[in-house]
């Protein structure tokens, strides 16, 4: 069953997230992705998250596709103009990639190549419009394509927005849905009470919202995220639990599994699990969450 079929059938979706390596050796990447085989329904392949140079999402997707896994190709407007974006979208379709996810892309100044010239020829809505247009069989110049690409299109949703920004985010979500988005992936969720309040403002039928569950690795990491990452708050008792636990990795797995289970109980249509480097622990999270 494809990701799109699964979303449409309303069955609980588990997405994994595996970022391609910084380098030309993909062997560890494939090993990690293989650990999740049969446990995740599709793998989101980030496009140089935080503007740090890595092999491309398209490259990662092509690899996973060849290995018989279902990848989600991430696209952002930071590094490519409308020609390059359309070219890669068409190539992805030709490679058999069925899912694309349009993301905003962090500014180059946050990454490891701050001297780079950001492109931003299109914005996120423009990229979604492009995807929609290509799926009608024409490119942005209105010229007919030989072979029409078909995708299940996703994007992102910032649940951490507050006040007026939240209204803007919800307005943007509407626009994204109008532009053909079938699923959105949120920022990492730790504070479920706050997330529940957010979900109450959503029209659940509009689109599938997949919260991200980020596997913490230490109390220090949790504290850093809580203090420094905008829009993400981590309950202090969660940080304390990691601190006190004799087996800290196990406690981190327990916390992630608990969040996954509670999100499922809340009626969310699925989750994205991000293990950043601890890919071998993904199965344990799903086991403990009874998925």
């Amino acid at each position: 069953m494809t990701l799109q079929d699964r979303i449409r059938s309303g069955k609980f979706v588990v997405l994994g997230e595996f970022e391609p390596p910084k380098g030309a050796d993909f062997s560890a990447y494939l090993k990690n992705a293989n650990l999740s085989r049969g446990r995740v329904h599709a793998v989101v392949v980030p496009e140089m998250a935080n503007a740090v140079l890595k092999a491309s999402s398209l490259g990662g997707c092509a690899y996973l596709q060849r290995e018989g896994m279902e990848p989600v190709f991430q696209l952002c407007c930071r590094d490519r103009n409308r020609l390059a974006l359309q070219a890669d979208i068409l190539s992805a379709a030709a490679l058999g990639i069925r899912n694309v996810m349009a993301v905003p892309g962090e500014d180059v100044r946050f990454g490891d190549h701050p001297q780079a010239r950001a492109v931003n020829d299109l914005d996120l809505m423009g990229l979604l419009e492009t995807l929609q247009k290509l799926q009608t069989g024409k490119d942005l110049a209105g010229i007919e394509l030989r072979g029409v690409p078909r995708f299940c299109v996703g994007s992102t949703l910032d649940t951490g927005a507050s006040g007026g920004l939240l209204n803007i985010e919800l307005e943007h979500l509407k626009r994204k849905i109008d532009l053909g988005v079938e699923f959105v992936v949120t920022n990492p969720i730790f504070d479920l009470r706050r997330f529940e309040q957010f979900v109450r403002r959503l029209d659940a039928k509009q689109t599938a919202v997949f919260p991200t569950v980020l596997l913490l690795k230490s109390a220090g990491m949790a504290r850093y995220i809580d203090r420094n990452i905008k829009g993400i708050s981590i309950p202090s008792e969660m940080i304390r639990d990691i601190q006190k636990a004799p087996d800290k990795p196990q406690e981190c797995i327990r916390i992630a599994a608990n969040i996954v289970a509670r999100l499922k109980d809340m009626g969310m249509p699925g989750v994205l699990i991000s293990t950043v480097g601890w890919e071998d622990k993904l199965s344990q999270i799903l086991d403990q969450a009874n998925i």
Partner: peptide
């Protein structure tokens, strides 16, 4: 040398 565009608009 390869140009540093951070002094153009790349740096905001």
């Amino acid at each position: 040398p390869i140009k540093d565009w951070s002094t153009e608009r790349a740096g905001g």
